[in-house]
Amino acid sequence: MFKYIVTRLLQAIPTLIAVSVLVFILINWTPGDPIDQLGLNNPNFTQEDYQRLREAYGLDKPWLERYSRWVWGVLTRFDLGFSRRYGIPAATVIFQQRLPNTLLLSGAALFIALAVAIPVGVLSATRQYSFFDYLFTFINFAGISVPVFWLGMLLIYLFSVQIPGIFPAGGLSSPEITYPAWSEAGFWSDWWRWLFDRLRYLILPAITLASIQMAAWTRFMRSSMLEVMNLDYVRTARAKGLSEQRVTYKHSLRNALLPIVTLVGLAIPQVVNGAVLTETVFAWPGMGRAIVEAILNKDFPVAMAAILLSAVLIVVFNIITDLIYALVDPRISYS
């Protein structure tokens, strides 16, 4: 088991190196550098300024040297570089400012997706070919076919514009409601107020981001449930005269649930892509938007850090998925 994990992690290293080289080369091939941006709105910016700053930022060196320096900094000091746009280390931008927001959003989205997919999938399976089943099959197809950003725009239009006051049209939280300091008297009421505010902002983007997974997982849950229900021991249980409900929930559901766990890991790349669009529509200050902004503004260290972090997440979740799969399915051995 331990050996398996180590092997998988070692295998991930060349993948991550390749991803980082690919991204580094691509980003460096795109024309323009951070200094062009500095000079643009400053009429006093001269050629000498440009040369001096290029030297100071090390931009005059060949890409291989800059790449090695960057990797060296990451490995020895966990230094991901410095964001010229925000004037702070890229690691701070990503890990302290953006990642928590993205984790919150995607966590909420995955939670919503699971919370809908499991019961709906089970119900569809137990009432196969009923109206309910057809309806949800349609909704599933709709979910995987709808452009995420369009769904987001529709939700904003319906729930923020038409019915103002319930859901905000975007953003992270109300600035006037901050996390309360501890006090005997009003802490809990303030805390509820704070929680309520965060939820108000979270719900629409989370539903939007959840839409794809929700649909895919409901489908998966339905077929997984159908498969389990036709297995011998479930039939046996039924033949023994156990109530249908008991058969469904005790025997089938438990076994049908296991494979869906692995899907969570496989959904990560889609969540990253979805987050770019969802965060753009809902002005959510997360990592997806940070990547787009960083690329547009030539803030290379932030773009590198964010894309690589996404790659790490994808790789790690793949490994976890395989592990869980190996754990739940005795036919697979760890080697």
Binding site: T15, L22, P269, I295, A306, S310, A311, N318
Partner: peptide, 14 residues
């Protein structure tokens, strides 16, 4: 594997 580990949309932009 490598291509699957790349967050596609941002790279598409680049």
């Amino acid at each position: 594997d490598i291509m699957l580990s790349v967050p596609t949309l941002p790279i598409l932009i680049v």
